[in-house]
Amino acid sequence: MNIDSIRNGIVIDHIKAGQGMKVYDFLDLGKLHCSVAIIQNAASSKMGKKDIIKIDSNLDVDLNALGYIDPSITINLIKDSQRVKKYHPELPETITNIIRCKNPRCITSTEQQLPHVFRLTDRVRDEYRCIYCESKANA
């Protein structure tokens, strides 16, 4: 299967097989007007199978937030058809409006306009907690 190379944009590689749509939804890629390719179950020498997303545009989002979904993801930035940067997303210190606090006693349960902010409290265990009620995030 051939997917055209992109000129300027982002290739999100080494997504765990089956997680591609989750990343797609997470980044809200359905709203883009540029070419977006999702490749599922691509062969990978390292992972056996993997998903890949190619976006033919430079997204104005914090891709490090992907570290919350899967820190093994590789992000490749492409400029003039050349890869100019390759990195793994780091676990962000805070994530805002990506997950919602499910604690019915949390202030966010009654005040709808409040952003749902989670802070990284344990980097080893990838643990995030609500900045308001300190409940643990459920991915």
Binding site: R105, E111, E134
Partner: peptide, 10 residues
């Protein structure tokens, strides 16, 4: 004092 957790943070 507020019944909701985190209200004073707000």
């Amino acid at each position: 004092r507020h019944p909701k957790e985190g209200a004073p943070t707000v």
